[in-house]
Amino acid sequence: MSCVVSNVAWSPLRLHAHARPSILRPVTAAPTPVAPFEQRLDPARLAELEAERLLAERAKAGDRRALAEILRKFGPILYRSVLLPRLGSEAVAQDALGDTYVRVVEKFAQFEWRGCGVYPWLRVVAMRIALDSLRSRKRETLFDPDDLARAADAAERDLDQGLDLKLCEERDREAAKIKLDTALGAINSRYALAIRLRVLEEKSREEAAGSLGVTVSTLDVVLHRALKALKKALGGDDSESP
């Protein structure tokens, strides 16, 4: 198992004995030559990880303050990168964050340090909670339950591969961007522009209408059609719209 940190990788095997033989590669395979690990990891990040490992150990041993510190440190990132983009609503994402915390508190004793910090593990928990939330109530979001099921599986693979926090965060942000760009690319460019101006850039009706060369009331109709088209492109059923 190696820890992927930004564009470098390091093996935590020398430090921690949590290695599992890869099922994809025979164990007899020659090990990839690696540079001394201090050359492969930013010392500041290494120091941070060591502090995190100590914190996680205390949390595992039942220290509530340590667990609270972990939640306070990583919770806002889970909310911003995992839950809010996938659930599409602040209220729903906050509920999911609360459920994630309850699950983390219940299961933290099972957490195993894998060299890359606590975040990738928390991310998998949050992803599963988000999936449950999305399945329990149909919502208009960028992601559908199938997307989320795939993302949860991918998060588990990321955990297995030891993806660093920053890469996890980048990957989640990128996923939302790709999904949106793909959907906007599938609809008429004028509709896509209306959505970008009015929804994503939050321009005023007057500004957006000016950019599109229509009156504000026409803009309302164009935006209405644009969102309907986008919903269709995202795979949603537009019959719900009154």
Binding site: R80, L97, L180, L200, K231, E240, P242
Partner: peptide, 20 residues
């Protein structure tokens, strides 16, 4: 409320960086 407004809001938060 409007279902498309829900979608618009979802797009906005998915690409923004709103903090809890």
């Amino acid at each position: 409320e409007h279902p498309l407004a829900e979608l618009a809001s979802a797009l906005r938060v998915a690409t923004g960086s709103k903090e809890v």
